[in-house]
Design a protein around this nucleic acid. Sequence first.
DNA 1: TCTGGGGTCCTAGGACCC
DNA 2: TCTGGGGTCCTAGGACCC
Length: 434
Amino acid sequence: MHATFYPPRFLLIDCNNFFASCERIFRPDLEGKPVIVLSNNDGCVIARSNEAKALGIAMGEPFFRIKPFAEARHIAVFSSNFSLYRDISHRVMDTVESVVGREVEQYSIDECFVPLTPSLAANVADVAISLRETVRRHVNIPVSIGIGSTRTLAKLACYVAKKKVSGNVYDIGGDAGERERLFADIPVDEVWGIGRRKGKKLRMVGIRTVRDFVRSDEDWIKRFLTVTGYHTLMELRGIPLITDVVRGAEERKSIVVSRSFGEKIRSREELVKALSTFVSKACVQLRQSGLVAGDMTLYFESSRFGENVVRKEWQTRFMRPTNDTRTMVHEVIRGLSAVYEQGPRYARGGVLLCSLQREGEVCGNLLFLDREEEDARQKKLMRVLDAVNRKYTGNASLRYAVLGGRDAQWHMRQERLSGFGKEGWNNLPVAKCR
DNA sequence: TCTGGGGTCCTAGGACCC
DNA sequence: TCTGGGGTCCTAGGACCC
């Protein structure tokens, strides 16, 4: 007896206009009306409902430029509210898992892959429709679903589901003729993994559609677009080469916290407050994941849209990898003393932690054997700090004095936060279970 | 006046060693 | 002091993703 071979199949679920759809959950009156969501500091547009897209609002458009237009057309405008979006995202993922009966591969805040088992694959059309309906009913988020024999094909199918078919579900199946016709109709830069640069490169040599690309010679593509382009090509031909789309929190390689400042900063003291706050946030993430960082980079810069862009950067390596806020804040102060220059108005800054390792797997350093007692005290302090902050709204109630008050001028502008911003939305009737 | 934030992977080139 | 090739490791920068 030999096992039957089942070709792999994948389903991709992607929430439509995710952030805009999240805001709509609490504002049913906005159904069918144009909605946009702005980036941090209300800087530019990062999500648009279909109606807003139809009005010609582009992704990444600076808000100040379209503000009069948005007002004239009664477009609903929201500041981004990521804690809300993360929560809705969890609900969507949980719902999907409950329908398919297995763990999904969450790829981003608003999409996930489901590798299909033979029994799911046998009924994939029904499964997809059930998923779409259940997510709509339980979380009130509309989704599109693509199905294919590789993850890249499932992504492409989802593009078709969104743009070209009614019902928002599409399966790139086995019919070669249908696939040919479909591929001939899709620009090559819509493929997952072909971005702006590679798309332009391909067009310059006459490869314009997905069909042109799929027909290209694979050795030539490998030389022309490196191995990543080769992987994409093979995936489009139905050979799965991309497997690693999820990474556990403990496998992360870096943590970045960076922001534009609400108002430009001139003084070193304000920069210390801002960057110390950023590094404190990064440390909380480290501790939540059970990680320590070996290196830290901090930077701050003037507006990238002005003349004479000034950018300052400073790097340090810790004697021992750490996740201790006090140690990091100390380094921030040291770094700013080293590279701060008076004069420019700084518009944004950030902190990057890398060389991450699991706490407890850090190689010992003989120089520090006598520090164990102090280490234990410091760890205990961090645990208490995290616990208090979790208990009191998670909003950094307890923090180092150097971080300054909450009204600091560099804090984000969020003038259009929906009423469900800080707390309270947990109690709202999100789930419309029958 | 006003222009997001957070990730990963690959490659080329330099440093260093044998 | 110079000659030479091959290997590894690290870093900066580019490209991609959402």
